[in-house]
Amino acid sequence: MNKRRPYVRSMDGWWKKNPFFVEYMIHEGTALFVAAYAGILLFGLLRLAQGEAAWNAWLSAMKNPWYIGFQVLALIALTYHTYTWFKIMPRTMPPVVVGGQRLSAWAITGSGLAVAAAACLGLLALVWGMAR
């Protein structure tokens, strides 16, 4: 008789077993805030299309402290999401060779973050300028 009886360990709660996996679940979880915030903006667009009264109602709803609280939370989640997104980026792309040298992971992450920050500030400046 064959004495072999390979034992397969359960995967239940796998993400709790290693700090690396816990962090992974957190950074994936922040994607829900990205989706929720996109949903809010899209709804705003819909209200805009429905006319001035609908738009103004949406604007005043946005001033509700609950909404403001959510936006602050979403901002924190999105910032963390952006950071982890660019942190994993060097692992996901083909090597970038500049002047015969391979670009380091931190150079890639750093330029990604810099571009994201510049885009945010640019957008903010644009909207600010339009609102004045």
Partner: peptide, 16 residues
């Protein structure tokens, strides 16, 4: 894209 494979690799293969 969990990325832990590349963290633990002892030969810097970067399988991810």
């Amino acid at each position: 894209a969990v990325g832990y494979c590349s963290e633990v690799c002892p030969k810097q293969v970067d399988p991810a």
